[in-house]
Design a protein around this nucleic acid. Structure first.
Lengths: 224, 224
DNA sequence: TCCGCCTTGTATCAAATGTTACAAACGACA
DNA sequence: TGTCGTTTGTAACATTTGATACAAGGCGGA
């Protein structure tokens, strides 16, 4: 049986209590699959024709590059869904190969049935729309960053965004390591640029705390 | 009144004929707005609380950088929707400022009403889901490209993708100029890298035609 | 055929970043 | 307090790319 307590904590089904969920799933032809550790869930390129939700355990997405080497992309623990953004759209194929990290229970909801759910329940509809929209928004943001030419520009954009109209002092929410990865650059290169901006008197860097000293020149950085 | 003939050609409403649309819109509290040329439609940062569809004419999205300079991002002609991916999600604010190119008619459907439409009609629901999902998929693809460090890697990935399992000869669908822009690099840099790969005997370049001579070394390029 | 335009090939120099390595500062914990 | 592991600061050198300029090749129209 499906554990509706867990399901109600899944991003797609939040806002519904287990009783309501049980009602919605009463006559729904969906399927729970149990797999051992290190089992193959789906291969990259397979058509994505069901919404798959991890009910217990955890799986990982892996990509195979052209050389056959596999790289881990991300972990997906319960109770998250798999590849929600690839259930619809022109290329509705799994972009990654999915392998189990632990023994898992997976809930498969066929696309058609999921569509019915979306039409039946306003919560599920908005949850799902919010979820894939947020992903689009995140990716758009990410592309903006990757499009800046220099690290100085990325830093300026990031800090100005973080500061908003508020104080001139900002606390970085990420370690330099993670920030560097987010920017798509190496960690020493990021530290160097931060150091340079500090020496030029534009900002003052103290580990994770950054004070904006010259907002005008910060803006100037962005025009290249 | 709304021209349902045009609306039926909009990505969100394809698959429905004008009569069906008229039925759906019968008691729908939506609004048609007429604007002159060069009028402001929405400012960047405004909350996105209605789905806006261009019924006639054309608008453009512009971004203002921190210096006040505006850059045109894209044109949106009738009958396309505006910022469909920003109606839902955590950051449902317009990412760009929208200005009219010509006199236009704009259809505003409040978010709540649009939700009702999605629940009422299966076509609209799948159209909309496909539309924003496709965008996510496009952006994911784009990020993969921007994440490659060197131009050689981008070229290798691009050409291997283009060639698939087929012949060893490939015709570039874009000019070098456009390809360079897609890669986010300058045109001479792209030409240089192509030339180098040619000199190394990995590929053979003849203007837009490219022959893969050494598939093994092409693959090697991708592991860095 | 000749001319002009657009695309592609090539060169040079400067700027930015990657790579690698190591030191310093901080935090948690015994 | 001292030690260990993690995060951050810095340095030197090699690569890669951007900027800019110009030449060469293809293509269509006069």
């Amino acid at each position: 049986m499906i554990d509706f307590e867990i399901l109600s904590k899944s991003p797609v089904f939040t806002g519904l209590n287990p009783v309501q969920l049980a009602g919605l799933f009463k006559d729904l032809p969906c399927q729970v699959r149990r797999l051992d550790k290190n089992a193959l869930v789906v291969s990259a390129g397979e058509e994505c024709s069901s919404l798959i939700i991890v009910l217990s355990g955890s799986v990982k997405g892996e990509m195979t590059d052209y050389t056959g080497k596999t790289i881990k992309i991300e972990d997906i623990p319960a109770p998250r869904p798999l590849a929600a953004a690839f259930l619809f759209g022109k290329n509705n194929y799994f972009p990654v190969t999915v392998i189990t990290n632990t023994p898992v229970e997976l809930l498969h909801i066929p696309k058609i049935e999921f569509l019915k759910l979306l039409q039946k329940d306003r919560h599920i509809l908005t949850n799902y729309l919010n979820s894939i929209s947020s992903r689009t928004q995140f990716l758009s943001q990410r592309i903006r960053f990757l499009s800046f030419r220099t690290i100085r520009q990325k830093i300026a954009h990031y800090i100005l965004d973080l500061a908003g109209n508020k104080l001139s002092s900002v606390e970085l929410p990420l370690s330099q390591e993670d920030l560097a990865e987010f920017f798509g650059v190496t960690r020493p290169a990021l530290a160097r640029s931060l150091g340079e901006l500090g020496q030029e008197g534009i900002i003052e860097v103290n580990r994770r705390t950054i004070r904006i000293l010259d907002k005008q020149r910060m803006n100037d950085l962005l025009r290249g």
